[in-house]
């Protein structure tokens, strides 16, 4: 719990960019653009993300949220500009960067059990077979699937399947965890439970997280900073610091006046973009 990104929400930084210059950013997005033919999807985005920081990305549909995330995962190449991970340019997918897709049903292997799906990540990074069972058990316990190791995805609820995908990503031992509207298809209660689990996992592992969502409250609840994208072409409209204490709490945090103020501010921003 020691790595709860203390410097970034304690109010010591009053600059728009709260990343201290002395720390090398974990991720540096430099003047990134992306075009398909004449159509420009992303039009020049620059963001530095510090190690251990959690960034929420919001914006109206079509603003390039998912595209930006895919570039961070190395699944899409910027037309110009670059994405750097710990100072070196990201040329393609990298095991240090894990991504949780929204469509867990398609991202999981239906023919493998929960344990088998987690095992895939271990097999990929050459983890010896005899060490796998223990790591798998540990990860599944952490994410609350300890009793479901032998179930197939088709036997699990949506929330459990998304938990499983997160466990598989953690098995990569990533420095960066990318989340593409991961809870968009889940019901409200499951969604809140998963938000808290992700927060505690990120705190435990010290991972840097980029969380794309269309849910403003989710963005505030999870983030240290919120990047608001604007469409046509996708670019950073505003960068908002979230100065809410951690660990966060579903009731207390959401009733905090600062939370409500941020919600109003973001709502007005997004609403303007829609008009």
């Amino acid at each position: 719990m020691a790595v709860t990104q203390a410097p970034f929400h304690a109010g010591e930084f009053d600059r728009a960019d709260p990343v201290p210059r002395s720390v090398q950013p974990r991720i540096r997005i430099r003047d990134v653009t992306l075009s398909y033919g004449a159509l420009q999807i992303i039009g020049g985005i620059s963001v530095d993300i510090a190690p251990g920081e959690t960034i929420s990305v919001i914006g109206p549909s079509g603003c390039g949220k998912t595209t930006l995330l895919r570039m961070l995962a190395g699944l899409a190449k910027p037309t110009s500009g670059s994405v750097e991970l710990d100072g070196s340019v990201l040329a393609g997918p990298n095991r240090s960067v894990a991504i949780v897709f929204q469509d867990y049903g398609k991202a999981l292997l239906p023919w493998r059990t929960a344990a088998g799906n987690v095992s895939l990540a271990l097999e990929a990074r050459g983890c010896p077979a005899r060490e796998r069972p223990e790591i798998i058990r540990d990860l599944l316990d952490k994410i609350g699937l300890g009793r479901h190791a032998d179930k197939y995805p088709s036997e699990m609820s949506g929330g459990m399947q998304q938990r499983l995908q997160i466990a598989r990503c953690l098995a990569q031992e990533p420095k960066v965890l990318l989340m593409d509207e991961p809870f968009g298809a889940l019901d409200a209660m499951t969604r809140q439970a998963l938000q808290d689990e992700v927060l505690s996992l990120v705190a435990m592992t010290g991972a840097t997280m980029v969380f794309v969502t269309h849910d403003l409250e989710e963005a505030i609840y999870l983030g240290d900073r919120i990047v608001c994208l604007q469409p046509n072409p996708g670019r950073v409209g505003r960068m908002v610091d979230v100065r809410l204490a951690r660990p966060r709490d579903q009731l207390m945090t959401r009733e905090d006046p600062e939370f409500l103020r941020l919600r109003r501010e973001l709502y007005d921003l997004i609403k303007d973009d829609h008009q």
Partner: peptide
């Protein structure tokens, strides 16, 4: 499923592993 090719790329599976697994 195209998504699985992306999963394979992100996990860093080799080509042979992708075919086999």
């Amino acid at each position: 499923e195209p998504r699985l090719y992306e999963v394979s790329a992100v996990l860093g599976l080799t080509r042979l592993q992708t075919i086999w697994k």
